[in-house]
């Protein structure tokens, strides 16, 4: 299971005006748009699952979703979202069910185009922490751990969807649970991870990518109403914003309606 912190940890959006959508809905819409028709996406529950279904229902009807529980190509029902990737709700109208180990080995074999998960803490090189806040030997908070997060981040091109807060975007994560580009440059491949790596980080403020050579995080788009200064102020490391940075199209009524139909109880989009 891929992890993200719970609703209880969310703070107020730095956006001044009250938008017509929640931060989570913005995350869902923006990350759905990054998925391409025909791709195979290995999705965690929460925003990744919602975004993948949204993509299926809009521009990517041929998107194949894989769940860590051993599910290949399901159509999850609106209003019946699974509590994890391992309950029967995940298997609705799937093409195939396999064991957990088999579906993870498909990832290793190279059958997955995109790994898609949430994140609790991320650093400049896209390393993710979902294990320990503070020192691992004396943690302030013991988090739930990797689940399949480490495997997905080690073996696939990654999209991460998470809230953009200074305490979550840190210079160096307390612990590398799921590897991004490690120390940058070629360090990921040098560590025995020649394939995959961070592709995009989608937040409620913008969309980030990674420099081809240094592998450091950089802004590739800002969401409507977000200034370059606002995104820098909410990041715990130097985050370059190009002078001609594009602005994303706001979520459409259709996209929002689909998300709200999928999650009427607001389990993941509150």
């Amino acid at each position: 299971m891929t992890t993200e912190l719970t609703r209880a940890t969310l703070t107020e959006s730095p956006l001044k005006a009250v938008p017509a959508y929640t931060a989570s809905e913005l995350l869902g819409v923006m990350s759905a748009r990054l998925l391409k028709d025909g791709q195979t996406v290995f999705a965690g529950v929460g925003i990744p699952l919602l975004a993948a279904i949204l993509a299926q229902k809009t521009h990517a009807p041929g998107l194949t979703i894989l769940f860590e529980g051993g599910v290949i190509g399901p159509f999850v029902e609106a209003g019946k979202l699974p509590p994890s990737t391992n309950e029967q709700r995940c298997t609705r109208r799937a093409n195939m069910l396999v064991s957990i180990t088999e579906v993870l080995l498909m990832l290793q074999r190279g059958y997955v185009d995109v790994g898609f998960m949430g994140g609790a803490q991320i650093d400049r090189y896209g390393n993710l922490n979902s294990s320990f806040i503070g020192d691992a030997d004396n943690p302030k908070i013991r988090l739930p751990g990797t689940g399949g997060g480490n495997d997905i981040a080690s073996l696939a091109d990654m999209i991460v969807a998470m809230k953009h807060e200074k305490r979550r975007f840190v210079e160096k994560v307390d612990f590398i649970t799921s590897p991004g580009f490690l120390e940058g440059g070629t360090s990921r491949a040098d560590a025995g991870l020649p394939a995959g790596g961070m592709f995009r980080v989608v937040t409620d403020l913008g969309i980030m990518g990674f420099d081809e050579a240094t592998k450091a995080m950089t802004v590739v788009a800002l969401h409507p109403g977000v200034t370059p200064q606002a995104i820098k102020d909410n990041t715990g490391f130097e985050l370059p914003v190009p002078a001609d940075v594009p602005v994303t199209e706001p979520p459409s009524d259709v996209e929002l309606a689909i998300l709200r139909e999928l999650d009427p109880q607001r389990l993941y989009t509150a």
């Binding site: 299971m1 719970t6 509590p83 994890s84 013991r142 739930p144 990797t146």
Partner: peptide, 22 residues
Amino acid sequence: QTSWFSQGIVWGVSKVMRAYTE
């Protein structure tokens, strides 16, 4: 010994797991 340990994402990080491990 496991890969992930908490009640489930919708219930947040397990308080009991935290209390015993921390």
